[in-house]
Amino acid sequence: MNAPRSYSTPVAALAGLVMAFILLPVAFIALYAFNESGYLRLPPQGLTFHWFANFFAIARFRAALEASLIVSAVVAPACLLIAVPAALALARYRFPGRDAINALIMSPLVVPGVVIGISFLSLSARVGTGLGLVPIIVAMTCFAFPFAVRALAANLHGLDPRLEEAARNLGASRFNAFLFVTLPQLRPGLLAGGIFVFVEAIDNFSIAVFLTNARITTLPVESYSYIRDFDDPTVAAMAVLLMSLSAVLVFAIDRLVGLDRFLELK
């Protein structure tokens, strides 16, 4: 006999409905992206890759995709480089001001995106860099590195500090103990933090919209303006591409560190 479940059938059904609600747009946009007509009709008609081709045919989309990939590819490693030492300091040392610094480091996470956007707009106007990739990269790094700190600190808290002591006891210098013992065990945190920052940077709209201009845009900003002007599934095709990317990432996470482990480090 099965163990009695903790929840009743109606509760399970409600949960199922909520899950359907969560998946509905994802499923729907996938249908729409392959829909032959630019105008939506149910059931979907035909099957076409036209909108994917269209996405890549539009120069502004290609440029925006490239810009977004450059931004994310710079921001993710930059955030990890900042976050690894910071997480080590916060998780491994007790020092005066630790709690205050921790709160300070996490503070960008509670500031609304629009406020961050305007701040960095003011900054780039003052410094004279103008708009474009550099201010976007700087702003995204300053805004997103706390995600990486959080993931790595959670990872470090889960590690046994005595392993480092064991390594020192066996003759490893402080640096070798970090390199051979701690760093290999930080792989889940590096992966989780890196992916989180990468996705945050590639998807960010509220900061980027203030720092882009007519010449340089990022993917979310460009799709937003496309949606305002056109009514066809080109953006749905882009969405399918992004969702496929995230599905691949989730598979990779699951294979490399396990989904459960990843969520603990979220």
Partner: peptide, 19 residues
């Protein structure tokens, strides 16, 4: 379910707003 949640979670705001 976890898989669906995380994919949705990572698939971004623009995509979902558009959907």
């Amino acid at each position: 379910v976890l898989f669906g949640l995380v994919v949705t979670f990572l698939s971004g705001g623009v995509t979902r707003a558009y959907a």
